[in-house]
Design a binder for these strands. Structure first.
Lengths: 171, 171
DNA sequence: GCTTGAAGCTGCGGATATCGCAACCGCGAG
DNA sequence: CTCGCGGTTGCGATATCCGCAGCTTCAAGC
């Protein structure tokens, strides 16, 4: 339940100010707290407090509120290669009919790590994480193309991941 | 320093078995530990130990090793929308000359969250995170296209994020 | 078969961190 | 001025983290 992604959460919630504008007032101190936790998600509240100029208890409350509001979550992220997923690809999808329902069908597939509706020559972009070539082939040709409404797909197999950060919101 | 992404770390290291095959022996217990930390990155070691059938100290050692090896990292991830980034896009890039050096130039830009070399009709796929339309325009037209070797780009502006998980390695 | 060494687990105690709570402050509304 | 509220602080009680010593397992070497 807590594993539900931030994005899913914000997708589900109605159009409160959180999803409409920049979100709930995020002052510089909360930003600084987030930066601390982006460096080390297990850093003690007292150490964070010292870094941002707040007491331990104040940091604790703010972190809890940020988690409750869905502004951030603290999770373990893994390198796909080292946990046995050797083939990844970005797949551009063209849809006829309702794009959103296709997006939901793709999002329901565990191999689809990332599903986003886009403007441009693709209606959807989907990141697929697979164990090997056979698995990738099966997912793209048998599962994704089998979804009703999918007109065509174009695949971009990953050769080398050059950068991946989780530093949104701190610049 | 700890904020260095998993991907960067595995990209930097030489071709040990970690980057070549499926990685360092990940048994079922370590997998279970990772799953626990994907649900809650701050879960106490004792609670994890109870869940996976290990002592608190053993869990602690395994987690530390997983972090040291770069198999996983524990970080805060935020929802870009709620922290003030309202425009995102996937950008496909075509390159003439050395693809890798272009990839590195793009990876050096803070707005590029994700840079991957691909096979297919694009040489690179880049995810860009921006504050607004002006910012996005500036990054794509003035910064990315200005990188020597970039022949052309095609943009896919995000309309709606439907799924984003951090559950690699647990299925 | 015995030794040796490395790797991994356990249990334990001292140092730390977390948590809940009551009190305190600043500030706008009435 | 007073009231109420959100956010903060300080402080004990409890739980967690951390380092260490000892135990077991297992494979290598002789």
């Amino acid at each position: 339940m807590h594993s539900e992604a931030v994005a899913s959460r914000s997708a589900d919630q109605k159009d409160t100010r959180e999803s409409r504008n920049g979100g709930p007032q995020l002052d510089a101190v909360s930003l600084a707290i987030i930066e601390q936790l982006q460096e080390d998600g297990r850093r003690p509240y007292a150490a964070i407090g010292k870094a941002v100029g707040l007491s331990e208890a104040a940091v604790r409350q703010r972190v809890q509120k940020l988690l409750d509001q869905g502004v951030m979550q603290i999770v373990a992220v893994t390198d796909p290669l080292t946990v046995g997923f050797r083939r990844q690809a970005m797949v551009g999808v063209n849809v006829e009919g309702d794009v959103e329902s296709v997006a939901e069908a793709l999002a329901a597939m565990s191999e689809c790590e990332y599903v986003v509706m886009t403007a441009g020559s693709f209606d959807l972009m989907v990141e697929v994480v697979c164990e090997d070539d056979d698995h990738l082939l099966e997912v793209i040709n048998r599962r994704i193309r089998a979804v009703p409404g999918v007109r065509s797909t174009e695949s971009f197999v990953y050769l080398k991941l050059k950068k991946q950060t989780y530093m949104w919101g701190t610049r």
